[in-house]
């Protein structure tokens, strides 16, 4: 079936190239004013220019840092809280409904609250990222703990395992697929909130760069920032997928 795989890979490549080509055609035909829509050529040039002049790099670094620190914060907290709630079926019942209520709450809704608490600071941005990315991680951990094969708990009792090693050696690895799915969602949320946070607080980063570019009609710069964010999202998702395939190797092996 490798032939088919190459076919699909080629097809996806054609779609990508077609998209860029179509964009170029529309821009060249000036269907939309070049003030608002530069072609991919100008956007690419702006991207290179941004890196050559050394302006773009610190902004990229800033956004990446915010995203990753916020995400790690949320992951640690989410998995720890999820474990505490997940280990006890009673705690799952007690906290479950409240968590389900808090989860769909858009994180942007708590931004005003966060600004009131922390001001327009770095801490506020990280707090919002942490809050937003926490839920998928927390809930997937709780869910994963709820889905542990009961037989394995009997095995652990028969072996006289301590509560802590049951969590570490049975419940957590068993929940790992769920937790990683939550972390993937959390990563997307982190990127979104990092950008929104930068736009609101004016902290140096890609979000702020895009906003300022738009306000001063530097459309190529704006698109360069958007392209960079797209790449960032893609690369981080791929990196996590790689980690996932390593950690969940036991699932991929031939059945």
């Amino acid at each position: 079936m490798t032939g088919w795989r190459w076919f699909w890979r080629l097809a996806s490549f054609v779609v990508g190239v077609g998209f860029i080509y179509g964009w170029q055609m529309i821009a060249d035909a000036k269907l939309i004013s070049p003030v608002f829509l530069p072609g991919p050529d100008r956007a690419w040039a702006a991207l290179l220019r941004g890196f050559h002049s050394g302006i773009l790099e610190p902004k990229l670094v800033g956004t990446v840092q915010r995203m990753i620190i916020g995400w790690l914060l949320a992951s640690l907290l989410g998995i720890a809280l999820g474990t505490m709630i997940g280990v006890s079926p009673r705690a799952r019942k007690i906290f479950g409904p409240t968590l389900e209520f808090l989860r769909p709450l858009p994180s942007s809704a708590i931004i005003p609250l966060a600004i009131a608490l922390f001001g327009l600071s770095e801490g506020m941005v990280l707090g919002v990222i942490g809050f937003g990315a926490l839920w998928p991680m927390l809930l997937s951990t709780v869910h994963g703990f709820g889905a542990v094969e009961p037989r394995l708990y009997e095995v652990s009792r028969a072996l006289g395992m301590s509560k802590l090693s049951v969590i570490w050696k049975i419940a957590l690895p068993s929940s790992m697929p769920d937790i990683l799915a939550g972390m993937r969602l959390g990563l997307t949320v982190s990127l979104i909130l990092a950008v929104v946070g930068e736009m609101l607080t004016g902290r140096d980063g890609l979000g702020n760069w895009i906003l300022l570019a738009a306000r001063s009609f530097r459309a190529p710069d704006l698109y360069a920032g958007v392209i960079l964010l797209g790449l960032l999202g893609y690369v981080s998702a791929q990196a996590l997928a790689w980690v996932e395939s390593r950690l969940l190797r036991w699932r991929a092996v031939a059945r």
């Binding site: 037989r151 394995l152 095995v155 690895p173």
Partner: peptide, 13 residues
């Protein structure tokens, strides 16, 4: 203890 359902009693990971 040895269980009948080996598929569940072993740690798949």
């Amino acid at each position: 203890i040895m269980f009948q359902d080996y598929g569940r009693a072993l740690l798949p990971w």
